[in-house]
Computed example of a mutant assay.
Amino acid sequence: MQEVIRLGEGLLDKPEDIAIDKDGILYTATRDGWIRRLHKNGTWESWWHVESEGLLGLTVTQAGDVIVCDAENGLLKVNEDGVEVLVSHFNGSKFRLADDVIESSDGTLYFSDASTKFSLNEWHLDVLEARPHGRLLKYNPRSKETSVVLDKLAFANGVALSADQDFLVVCETWKFRCLKYWLKGDTKGETEVFIDNLPGTPDNINLAPDGSFWIAMLQLSHPRLKFVHGARIVKRIVATLTVSRLWIFGAHKKAMVVNVASNGKQIKRSFDDPTGQVMAFVTSVLEFEGHLYLGSLQTNFIGKLPLNST
């Protein structure tokens, strides 16, 4: 990742995710509550501000609206008219960690709720407990109804649709894998493993122009996780430490993104920064016009990496 160009350096506070509309305008949401966009002429605009420290995944709809996951306030719709909360509760309970979202061709919004037990500031406790509190939901903008697609997921994270929208992929971060949920055909409604035994824990996932998928990998340490899960008392001690999330996860020191084939059978290509000198804690990767755009929770910029980089 040595050839990374830094976009918006100093302006952006931990840009988790990136979306680009049909006109080539780039959008990101940051930890200080700003939804900012980069115009094609290279100028940044501080578009809308939300009173939140938990803006995560986002996507641009066919209508041109930006849908943003606010960890505790649910799905937000953002456009020139302002910010509107689409859904903030499900079955009477407020969301704790709405994470990523994608729109299908019929307007349905599929989104992940990483944990029904732990909030954004407690996300590291989810891996310590090692129980599946995540779920995948869908929101119908016409009926304004929300329903569960999959539950008991191990920290449901990134969500993406296949090129033909015959299936959906959702990342299970703590299981080092992604699941495939069929939306069409004879297998409609069935779930299977899309890819497992990944070289890191998958965060956000995006469809590439050729039908493959780009996945951002948090570089967690298997030996450390096994050690922590090996003894209940160790879990309790680590959970009380402020630095626990850094001790368990080496994510703040490394970065990796991988390109997975459309059938999930192989990793076609990867880029990494094993020392984190250029970028670390990369949480999203989006391919656009021959470049990869990289979001991170460890930077004050978005990375732009030429795909011909070696």
Rank of each mutant, 00 (worst) to 15 (best):
R36A: 13
N206P: 08
T108L: 15
L137W: 00
F281M: 11
S221I: 03
Q165K: 07
G82D: 00
A239S: 15
D81G: 11
G8I: 12
D99R: 08
L198Q: 01
H291I: 01
V50K: 06
L12G: 04
Y110R: 07
I195W: 00
D32P: 11
L125S: 00
Q165L: 04
K226M: 08
T299C: 13
V148D: 12
S46T: 10
L161T: 15
L150T: 04
K94I: 00
L11D: 05
P306G: 08
P132E: 03
R135N: 04
V127D: 07
K265Y: 01
K77G: 01
W174C: 08
E192F: 00
C69P: 02
Y293K: 01
T61N: 01
F194P: 10
L76R: 09
V169W: 00
A114Q: 00
G10P: 03
R245L: 10
S52A: 11
F90G: 01
E53Q: 14
D81I: 10
L109K: 07
C178E: 07
I35W: 06
C69I: 07
E53M: 13
T108I: 15
L86P: 05
N121F: 09
T59N: 00
F288E: 05
E192Q: 12
D13K: 14
A156Q: 02
T116C: 01
N259V: 05
K77Q: 12
F249A: 15
G134H: 10
I67S: 10
S262H: 12
S212H: 09
K180R: 15
N300Q: 11
L168D: 02
T173L: 12
N73C: 03
L11R: 08
C178P: 01
V258C: 05
L26A: 04
